[in-house]
Amino acid sequence: MKKRSTEFLTYLLKPILIYAVGALVCHFLSAWFSLNLAQIVIYHKWQYTTVPASVQMWTRILLIYPISFGVSLITIWTLLQKLIPTFYFTTEDNKTYKYIAMAIILPGELVRYIVCLSSMGSLLGSGRFSVISSNWFNQLWWALASKSEFLLSQGKSSLIGGLIFTLCYIAYLLLYLFIVLKMFRYLWKVSQWEAEDLGSQTPNKIKRNF
């Protein structure tokens, strides 16, 4: 039992923690970076005036979301490249990598989701630490509020806004997870080939193999 617990600590808890920290860092980095980039490139023109709504929308669609998505994917790719060969272990079952991938990725993503939802629109008044920023959320909220005054009077609008946000965010996360799982599968296969078939030919040698 003691051995098992130490194995869990070394071979599963470590990558989970590394992934969680990495995901959070890359998330903040990408959100900060893309928002600042948008401000410099396009918002510069409307520095002391209100930015038109269409410009806000198109900067988000063309600049902020793709760049933040790309930056976070690149950082996760480099993280997984270091992570998988060190924590790889041989298995006969080909589906095992999926469970391991979910065990490593999902806790980190859950933390990211909770942090995003709690920090939505509150930090610096612009939601700059969430990928779906507060302006968009506010627009949705006002659109809903103007259509359903009844719900507003009942005090349920914030709940609906929150629900819409979570739905959008879950859709984003699903796409993100799909791509990250593809990455995980490729790297897992590569480490499997290196460990079982290629052996001494590989320049990046596997550190642990049990």
Binding site: W193, D197, L198, Q201
Partner: peptide, 9 residues
């Protein structure tokens, strides 16, 4: 092109 124990890569 690499030759492993069982497959080519």
């Amino acid at each position: 092109v690499m030759k492993g124990k069982t497959h080519y890569y």
